[in-house]
């Protein structure tokens, strides 16, 4: 088959032009996916959108639909006592956690990119969360760290902050902040666990980006007398900035689509316990709309600051 269809360089005139044939092969390569995606993705997606405008009932194993317009949406936003709260909570958490995860993972990536003994081991340790953090094990670990009394992990990290040492220090220095900074630092310290555990892939990506920086850039910077600080901001940062966007989007999607987050749990309740598919779909679509808007906004903002080497 291969010999017949190969481009024969004009020796034998074929019926289809080379371009057309290549296009057909393109469809051939993606055909299987296209078939599957229509069946397992696009149709369910459309159906779910339709569900969200209907009230769904189940009678003798058959589904009945009744058009109710935007009722489900208003029910999700106005009547459900938890949904809006959870939505708000998840959004705010993502909003402050994402930058922290990014800064942290960039920092760790820079450190892990330096040469020192035991680097391979250190890398192996920091990527370990990648294989655990997506599963139920992580949820259990996280819960147990929160709530097992004597051996609890998280609160220990923040006892230092609980005594408001930072606030005292700031007061001493003449900046009365009313404990707001302390509050923030406490929140961060409480979440060190979560941040470290959800930065695996981000570190991996940043590290790969860092290794793409040509060594000559470092040499040139050193000859010009740049300090490490300047080197980081003027050379390293522009190089990794495209990956800041990739990582940002990855982090946002990961935290939004995490089956453990509260909005998802709430949606799950209506899918499995109080069966109300219409309401569940409406909730999921509102949520998805917010995700899309957030990602579009982030992409738009970050793209203005990104430096692309080739373009």
């Amino acid at each position: 088959m291969s010999r017949k269809k190969a481009p024969s360089g004009g020796a034998k005139p074929s019926k289809l032009s080379y371009e057309r044939r290549k296009a057909l092969y393109g469809y051939g390569f993606i055909g299987l996916w296209l078939l599957g995606t229509i069946w397992f993705f696009l149709i369910p997606l459309g159906k779910s959108l339709i569900y969200s405008f209907n009230s769904i009932g189940i009678e003798n194993g058959n589904m009945t639909m009744k058009w109710t317009g935007l009722d489900n949406y208003s029910a999700a936003l106005n009547k459900d006592q938890y949904y809006v709260d959870y939505l708000e909570k998840t959004l705010i958490e993502t909003l402050w956690k994402t930058p922290l995860i990014l800064i942290f993972s960039l920092f760790i990536a820079v450190v892990l990119n330096q040469k020192f003994r035991g680097r391979t081991l250190a890398r192996a340790v920091f990527f370990l969360p990648v294989i655990i953090a997506t599963g139920p094990v992580f949820r259990i670990i996280n819960g147990d760290m929160d709530a097992t009394g004597t051996t609890s992990g998280q609160p220990q990290f923040s006892t230092l902050m609980k005594t408001d040492l930072v606030g005292d220090l700031m007061n001493f220095l003449g900046y009365g902040t009313g404990g707001r900074i302390t509050g923030f630092i406490t929140a961060v310290a409480d979440n060190v666990f979560g941040i470290v555990w959800s930065s695996g892939i981000q570190i991996l990506l940043f590290l790969a980006a860092l290794q793409n920086i040509p060594p000559s850039a470092r040499e040139a910077a050193q000859i010009e007398g740049a300090t490490s600080w300047e080197y980081f901001w003027k050379i390293v940062f522009p190089y990794v900035s495209p990956f800041v966007l990739a990582n940002l989007i990855f982090t946002v999607i990961d935290s939004f689509t995490d089956p453990m987050n509260e909005v998802m749990q709430r949606i799950l309740v209506f899918q499995t316990v109080d069966i109300n598919y219409g309401l569940a779909s409406a909730m999921a679509w509102i949520y998805f709309g917010i995700i899309l808007a957030a990602i579009a906004l982030v992409t738009f903002i970050v793209n203005k600051f990104v430096y692309y080497e080739v373009d």
Binding site: F41, L45, S48, Y51, T257, M264
Partner: peptide, 9 residues
């Protein structure tokens, strides 16, 4: 798209 949207259909 989160899996939760399409899971029921």
């Amino acid at each position: 798209v989160p899996m939760q949207i399409i899971s029921v259909p």
